[in-house]
Simulated scan of single mutants.
Amino acid sequence: MTSTTPDLVLLVEDDRRLAALTREYLEGHGLAVVHVADGRRGLEEALSGRYEAVLLDLMLPGKDGLEVCRELRARSDVPVIVLTARGEEADRVLGLELGADDYLAKPFSPRELLARIRAVVRRARGRAGPAASTVRVGGLVIDPAARRVTLDGREIALTGYEFALLDALARRAGRILSREQLMELAGGSAEEAFDRSVDVHVSRLRQKLGDDPKRPRLIKTVRGAGYLLAAEGE
């Protein structure tokens, strides 16, 4: 990260020992970290607009982390990384469905967490890759410089990961992209493409674009192969 002041990250975690260790590591690598230990205060802080990213535990006092994620995403597009001791796929998928950009199961490597934070912040700032031109596919217009998406003139609010995913599909409209390719193009890890995370993000994109999941006209599923964004006229 190239800013002269440290990026500010919110850590919502009730395990104070884990929070202290995580904070020490992240601050030792150039971030500034604010720690809160309960869900209600965590939501208030996250909505303040001060933070580059929110690290959110699921099992919290005051307000459950999933509820925090749901309420936060309804009012803010700040990047959210869910930190959870719930290792089951269903819990990870639920977090993504509620709007989290990424997740990390406990116990996690602080180094991996740092890499995930940097990735979601880059995507949110529109710096996940080289500067790119505006792309148009039918009524869909994606402007990377302004990090703005419109469909038939209507602006669509997307998280950083959703924007990166849609941009990757749109620049290759009409081409089938596997889950592994989509993860890599959107700035994630291809190793994670074997779980349902890509499917969940695509489902959220369809919902925001008003695409019928049973008969999608924009983002189409190619069974056993991946996804494609329909080229104009398809």
Rank of each mutant, 00 (worst) to 15 (best):
A157D: 15
L47H: 02
I142C: 06
R70E: 14
D38A: 01
E45C: 10
S203F: 06
E234P: 09
R196F: 15
S133H: 09
D102N: 10
V121T: 01
P107V: 11
R206S: 08
A20D: 07
K63F: 04
G87F: 13
L182G: 06
A230V: 10
G210T: 10
L166M: 10
K63W: 01
E67A: 07
L21F: 11
T2C: 00
A90W: 06
L43W: 08
P213G: 09
A20Q: 03
V34G: 00
Y227T: 08
A190R: 05
G62I: 08
I176V: 15
K208I: 01
L169W: 03
S178I: 11
V202M: 02
T4N: 09
E97W: 15
Y51Q: 01
L10E: 06
S197M: 05
R223T: 14
T84C: 06
L11Y: 12
L94H: 11
E234C: 04
P110L: 08
E27F: 11
R148Q: 13
F108N: 07
G233K: 12
V121Y: 00
A124W: 13
A190P: 11
A173F: 03
L21P: 10
L218V: 12
A193F: 15
I117V: 11
L58H: 00
A100E: 08
P130Q: 01
I142V: 09
D167S: 08
L209G: 05
E162L: 07
V135Q: 01
G188L: 11
L182A: 09
R92L: 15
G233S: 12
G28C: 04
G129A: 11
